[in-house]
Nucleic acid binder design. Structure first.
Lengths: 237, 237
DNA sequence: TCCCCGGCTGACTCGCGAGTCAGTCGGCCG
DNA sequence: CGGCCGACTGACTCGCGAGTCAGCCGGGGA
C-alpha cells in the first residue's frame, strides 16, 4: 500500500467518519422529533460533536435533510430498479421483489425509513427543494412503466391505469410500513414484518393480475346483481 | 322560524362568518405553502383581515391547524362510520362506500384534503398534539374492526390481518389521492377521479375477498346517474 | 523543538415570525 | 345624545434557533 493511498484513504475515511456520525445522528433525531421539531444543537449533541462542526460538513440544516434523503433514497431506488427492470422475471416476482426491498430496508434501518416516509416522501413543501419528492415520484413512475410493460405482455389486466397501479402498490407498502412506524402494529418481530410483506404483495397481486378471477374485463360491463340498494353517487346537488 | 332561532342563528353565523373566512384562508395557504412554510400574516392577508384578528378567533397557530384538522377529519370520519357500521350492507359495498366518501371529499374540497393528507395524517411531529394523527389512526382502527367483523361472517379471507387490510385500503386510497394532489395524474377531471376510485376499490376487493373473485358487480355505470336522493357525502356540516 | 495547518469548538449575532396590547371604530342601549 | 362594549387593527416585543467566526488544540513536518 503506497503512502499516498494510505494517506488519502485514511483521511477519506476519517473525514467521512465524522460526517457519517453526524448523518446518523440526524436520522435518529429527525425520526424522534421530526425535521422541524429539532434544532441543529440536538443533532450535534446526539452525534457528540460541537455545534459548529455540523456546519463544517453541511451547508445548512436543509442540506442535512437533503443528504439523508439522497443517500437513503438512492439505495432504495437502485435496488428497486434492478428488480423492476430485470428481463426474465415475471410481474409477480417483481412485485414481490419490490415489497422485499422495502421491508428489508425497514428491517435494516427503521428510523431511516421513518424519516424517508414522513419527512421526505410527504414533505408538504410549498417550495420543496426539487430533489425531495421528485425522487419519490420518480420511483412511482418507474413502477408505472413496469406495469405498462406488463400490460403489453398480458401479465396485467389491461383495464387498469399503470400509474394508478403504481400508486396502489406504493400506497399499500407505504401504509403497511407506516403501521409499523407509527406503532399501530404492536408486534414488530421480523416474522410479523414478513407476514405483512407477504400479505401486501399477495393481496395486491390478486387484485391486479388477470385471469383466475373470471370477472376481469367482462365484469366491467356485467349488469349489477343488486346486492341491496346502494344510493350513492359521485354527484351532489 | 322563531325569533330565538333566528337571532341565535344570525349571531352564530355572523361571528362564524369571520371565523370561517379565516379558516378557509388557512386551508388555502396551508395547501399552497405548507403549515411550516407560511406565516400568520399570510393567512391574515389571504383572509383579508388584520393580523391580530386571527388571534382573536384562534389561540395560536397550532390551534388553527388543529381546527382545520378537526373539522375536516370529523366530517370524513362520521361519514365513514355510517358506511362502515351499516348493518345491512355487504363488505364490498362498505369498501366502495369508503372509497366514495374519500374521493367525494377530494372532489368537493381538494385543498382541504391536501392539507389533511400532507399536514395532518402524516404529521412527522414526534408525539405532539395527540388529536392529530390519533384521529387518523382511529379511522384505521375503525376499518380494521369492520374487516374483523367481515371475517367472522366469512366475507373476508380469514388468513389476513384485519389491521393490515385496513392499512392496505387506506394506503391505496391515500396514495391514489396523493397522485392527484401532487399532480402525478395530469388528468384531474371528475371522470378520471371516478375511474381511479373504482379501480382502487375493485382492485382492493379482488385482492382481499375470499373465493375466486368478487361477485362481479359493476354498478358504477348507473352510479353516475343515480344521483336522486343521497344524504351522504354532502361536505360541510 | 517550534510552528503551521486544518479539524474542531461554542459563545455570539441577528433575522424572523409568533404572539401581545394599547388603541380605534361602529353599533346599540339607556 | 353620550357612554359602553366588543369586534377589529397593526406596530411592537421578544424568544428562538439558524448560521458565523475568532480562536483553540493536536499532530505532523521542518
Amino acid at each position: 500500500m503506497s503512502p499516498q493511498q494510505r494517506k488519502s484513504e485514511e483521511a477519506g475515511s476519517r473525514e467521512n467518519e465524522r460526517r457519517r456520525t453526524i448523518l446518523r445522528a440526524a436520522i435518529d433525531v429527525f425520526a424522534r422529533k421530526g425535521y422541524h421539531g429539532c434544532r441543529i444543537a440536538d443533532v450535534a449533541r446526539e452525534a457528540g460533536v460541537a455545534y459548529g462542526l455540523v456546519y463544517h460538513y453541511f451547508k445548512n440544516k436543509d442540506e442535512l435533510l437533503e443528504t439523508v434523503a439522497e443517500t437513503g433514497w438512492s439505495g432504495f431506488v437502485s435496488r428497486m430498479r434492478t428488480v423492476a427492470e430485470s428481463e426474465d422475471a415475471s410481474l409477480e416476482d417483481k412485485v414481490r421483489g419490490i415489497a422485499d426491498v422495502a421491508f428489508e430496508a425497514y428491517r435494516v434501518d427503521p428510523r431511516a425509513v421513518k424519516v424517508l416516509i414522513l419527512e421526505v416522501a410527504r414533505s408538504p413543501a410549498g417550495g420543496h427543494v426539487v430533489s425531495r419528492q421528485q425522487a419519490f415520484l420518480g420511483a412511482i413512475r418507474m413502477a408505472a412503466e413496469m406495469f405498462a410493460r406488463a400490460q403489453s405482455t398480458g401479465e396485467l389486466r389491461s383495464d387498469l391505469d399503470p400509474m394508478l397501479c403504481a400508486s396502489l402498490l406504493f400506497g399499500a407498502i407505504e401504509m403497511g410500513l407506516t403501521a409499523f412506524v407509527s406503532g399501530l402494529m404492536e408486534d414488530r418481530s421480523p416474522e410479523a414484518l414478513d407476514r405483512a410483506k407477504v400479505q401486501i404483495a399477495e393481496s395486491f397481486l390478486r387484485g391486479v393480475l388477470p385471469g383466475a378471477a373470471p370477472s376481469a374485463e367482462a365484469s366491467w360491463k356485467q349488469e349489477k346483481q343488486s346486492s341491496g340498494t346502494r344510493p350513492k353517487a359521485g354527484k351532489r346537488s
